[in-house]
Nucleic acid binder design. Structure first.
Lengths: 133, 133
DNA sequence: GTCATTACTATCCATAAGGTGCCTATATAT
DNA sequence: ATATATAGGCACCTTATGGATAGTAATGAC
């Protein structure tokens, strides 16, 4: 059994395994970014909306609801006017945030490499075109 | 500057940053699983199709093309009959595979926690229902 | 009275993701 | 002659996702 095999009967490669659905949930750029943003500490909806450039209110709410449902984020409502709601990572969420931050760092570090690779790929497609009559 | 700030001008929180598009590319369960599967070593299309339970041939091809375009996977074609094509991680891909494997392990380890959280969440919704007329 | 604030909800719509089925090539085996 | 194996491509269709837009509540400021 190597590190590609499941440790305790859970195997993300199997469609029906609970861990597979967890992976599905994590496979969203807004989940990544929201969890990373909350690493700093609790934030309000508006703060998150400003931090997560380009997110729509709908997506933000939807993402936070999923994270809350799955026990990664805690939502605290202050019964005041105007409304005040704060979000923070649970312990489980903080645990995950470390990993997701590494992915984010990786993306930032290797963005140039991937940009180059994409440029080469599209250049090759140009070449293919060039040899056609 | 804390670990949530970008190190070299790259910032995945910014919509137009190249690292944001990298994150978008990574945010796919099939990308996760394909890269994890290739960690063992080079594999043929058919092997991958069997390993990635539930993937359609179309999605498999599409995922491999994206990974190849972005320089994470190398595709080698043997000009034989019947066709033989092998895929393997590039150095960049292997670099990433370590991180993605950690995510996969996390998903497998914490699948029970998240299952519980989901169960609690839906139980609470039931409660909400119960107090309605 | 009405405007701003805040954190949402509720719609609608365009796009994208994903699924299905059929097609290609050719050497070997039956 | 027909079937099999392999790695796709291509066209079509349905569903899901994301985005845009507008609306809600309750209060204090003006």
């Amino acid at each position: 059994m190597d590190s590609n095999d499941a440790p305790l009967g859970y195997d993300a490669f199997r469609r029906t395994c609970p861990s597979h659905t967890v992976l599905e949930m994590l496979a969203s750029k807004w989940v990544y970014l929201t969890v990373c943003a909350l690493r700093r500490g609790r934030m309000r909806n508006g703060e998150l909306a400003r931090k997560l450039e380009g997110i729509t209110p709908k997506m933000l709410t939807q993402t936070l609801r999923v994270l809350e449902r799955d026990g990664l984020v805690r939502r605290e409502v202050y019964p005041v006017i105007p409304p005040r709601v704060e979000y923070e990572l649970t312990e489980l969420g903080q645990n995950l945030a470390g990993l997701l931050s590494q992915i984010r760092s990786w993306a930032e570090e290797h963005a140039p490499d991937i940009k180059d690779a994409r440029a080469r790929a599209s250049a090759n497609r140009q070449d293919d075109m060039a040899v056609l009559p």
